[in-house]
Simulated scan of single mutants.
Amino acid sequence: MIYFDNSATTKPYKEVIDSFVTVSSEYFGNPSSLHSIGGQAEKLLLQAREQVAKLLTVKPSEIYFTSGGTEGNNLAIKGAASLNGNRGRHLITTSVEHPSVRAAMEQLEQKGFEVTYLPVDKQGKVCVADIEKAIRKDTIFISIMHVNNEVGTVQPIEEIGQMLKKHPTILFHVDAVQSVGKIPLSIHENRIDFCSISGHKFHGLKGTGALFIREGARLAPLFSGGSQERKIRSGTENVAGAVAMAKALRMTIEKRAAGIERMKKIQSMLRTGLNRIEGIRVNTPTENAAPHILNFSLCELKSEVFIHALEQQGIFVSTTSACSSKRKSPSKTLIEMGVPEALAESAVRISLSFNNTEEEAMTAIRAIEKAANQLRKVLE
């Protein structure tokens, strides 16, 4: 089996699963309980928070555990808008954000907020000057993803952060779900107020995540209930999940330097091989792109049929993002990049992890060419 769908989810490290089982079995107490079993769980939660904060180079008090990227994005966007709506009702984002950001913005529009959706260029990149031009007196919030989940474009977060230093009252949220552990990001230096991450994207477990909330930045909680996560995220804490995520993040960052170089080499091999196959167009830009995502289109072929043809050869890839793949609609990101609708409808995404190999890449190229040729013969 060759697994090339790591942007949808990664295979958890064995050590991560082991830590989850150990904590769940031996330290199962509620961290809010006053007895010693609860105290043990609380200590583990504190240690996990400290470890995640250290790995992200932020303060432990700025880390809030969530269930993943979708919750983190919704909490940052809706929570900040709810608490700061008295200062203004205008928000800015791009036209190529993850559905959890786009849908949150659309819900706020229904509540009377105004959202500017900025276009991107042919590489899928937003222009910093466009963001600054869109800022108004009533702008309170900007949300920009770090790495696009469909094509891998890296957005100019550093330049945006520097520009926003001239606008200290505007809150800045970054969806770093696809970049954490793969593309370094200095949260404090880039003037970021909120930053979302998700454990299962870096070999942690599904249902685990964290939201960075800069010290001094405020938002309203989405959940009503207890006072967990310093009253920001009510609900009994997932101690085992937090510990497992901290371990996954540590292991990923320890492997990052060598892993990134390996993925770059494999991505280059795949790009070269795909460019040699007739009827294939590579959509991922050659510059300002993450090393783990490669998006391409198949002229005159349906991506769903193609994906199943590859699966029969033991190779697993995807269409658009996992959140949108079953809708059978063209990639919104590619449409916004100016890709013709027919090609946007036939898009396929390969996404790598540190565990993939050059041999897998060569096997995949041969399988892709074979599947494409076979499907075209059927259409003749």
Rank of each mutant, 00 (worst) to 15 (best):
Ala290Cys: 15
Ala129Cys: 01
Gln40Asp: 14
Ala242Lys: 02
His98Ile: 09
Ile131Ser: 05
Ala290Tyr: 12
Gly72Lys: 01
Ile277Tyr: 05
His146Met: 06
Ser268Asn: 12
Gln155Leu: 06
Val128Ala: 04
Leu298Tyr: 00
Lys11Val: 13
Ser325Cys: 10
Ser95Thr: 12
Arg87Asn: 09
Tyr27His: 11
Leu83Thr: 08
Phe172Asp: 00
Met263Phe: 03
Asn373Tyr: 08
Ser100Trp: 14
Glu109Gly: 11
Val378Arg: 02
Met269Tyr: 03
Met145Trp: 10
Thr363Ile: 01
Ser224Ala: 10
Ile335Cys: 08
Ala176Thr: 09
Ile192Gln: 07
Glu158Val: 11
Ser61Pro: 03
Glu158Ser: 13
Ser234Arg: 04
Gly88Glu: 00
Glu114Arg: 14
Thr116Gln: 13
Arg256His: 11
Gly85Lys: 01
Leu310Val: 09
Ile293Cys: 11
Ala53Gly: 11
Ala322Arg: 06
Ser268Ala: 14
Ala53Lys: 09
Leu56Cys: 07
Met163Gly: 05
Ala322Ile: 10
Ala41Arg: 06
Arg233Ala: 10
Ala257Phe: 13
Ile315Met: 04
Met145Gln: 14
Glu189Gln: 13
Val378Gln: 03
Met163Tyr: 14
Met263Asn: 02
Ala80Arg: 00
Arg87Trp: 06
Val58His: 08
Glu106Arg: 03
Ser19Arg: 15
Thr284Ala: 12
Asp18Met: 08
Ala246Gly: 12
Ala257Gly: 04
Met269Ala: 08
Thr333Lys: 03
Ala367Val: 01
Leu44Glu: 00
Cys299Asp: 15
Ala80Thr: 04
Glu380Trp: 12
Glu345Gly: 15
Gln123Leu: 10
Val147Tyr: 04
Leu219Ala: 03
Ile368Gln: 01
Pro291Arg: 06
Gly279Ile: 00
Ser318Cys: 03
Gly235Tyr: 07
Glu114Phe: 13
Ser19Phe: 02
Lys182Pro: 02
Arg214Pro: 07
Thr357Arg: 05
Gln40Arg: 15
Phe141Met: 01
Ala364Lys: 04
Ile17Gly: 05
Lys54Glu: 15
Leu310Gln: 04
Ser351Trp: 04
Leu222Gln: 08
Asn74Arg: 14
Met145Phe: 12
Leu375Val: 04
Ala309Ser: 08
Lys133Leu: 01
Val52Gln: 04
Ile170His: 06
